[in-house]
Amino acid sequence: MQEKIDHAIEVIGSVLYGKERQIRQSLTCLFAHGHLLIEDLPGMGKTTLAHALAQVLGLNYQRVQFTSDMLPADLLGVTIFDSASNEFHFHRGPVFTQLLLADEINRTTPKTQSALLEAMEERQVSLEGNTYPLPDPFFVIATQNPLSQYGTFPLPESQLDRFLMRIELGYPTAEAERELLKGGDVRDRIADLPVCIDQQALREIYLACEQVQASNSLLDYLQRLVRYSREAKGFAYGISPRGALALLRSAKTWAYMHGRQYVVPEDLQSLLKPVFGHRLRAAEDYAEHGGLALVQRLLSEVDVVG
């Protein structure tokens, strides 16, 4: 199974150069049944990553470009009166898919954002008294522009918390960029990517990850991290129990992807930035950029050994 995963990473890497760590993190997120938030400047390959992930995992895929005049119905679907059959028919919106790419989620109004976020949490859509289940698996990969850009509606903390991870892609290295410039249009190639992990395998991975061991010493470390974020100065608020659970779940998956049946502190440390970065805020930071600096403090100040 690890070979399949490594192969999938390699395949995605052939369209997104030099981003192995981010690819691994986003796969971890999906394997752990979590939603992923990619935050970066336009044109950094957010859509490419999302698209390639859908292709490699063999999931059907919808992309929604969020705009400021978008309404929840545009996302969830509408009920229309069919004069031929004299009945109301529900027309499913783009949310009814296995992998939804919500592009530039913070460009739309809170109303639409919350419609999506409810679907993410409940994995179902409730409209006019009817409940429509979403397909299984259901993943959301949302991208957002950095908050300092014009025309953005920042997601409140409670909604950020729904995303298991938030990653940043960053500029490519010089070599990767040269490769990219030589390689021509990646869009055509994405459509040709092979399916590496089918839905059966996805389920197996999910179950196998549950079996990964987390020893007492590791849980001690996790609790020290969480307690530090709650007690040390400079943190506006600490990590919630849901945040701690999220880190543990992703760390188990991360360990599994590295072929281990137990979690080591390195797993927690590798995932601390994507999992805790958007869940922390510095006490005196009003631009909400301090999360990663706080994660760095957790990494360097909390003792790994008891």
Binding site: S300, V304, V305
Partner: peptide, 10 residues
């Protein structure tokens, strides 16, 4: 010396 945040392996 080992730094506090440094795992034994690192």
């Amino acid at each position: 010396g080992r730094q506090p945040g440094e795992t034994v392996k690192n």
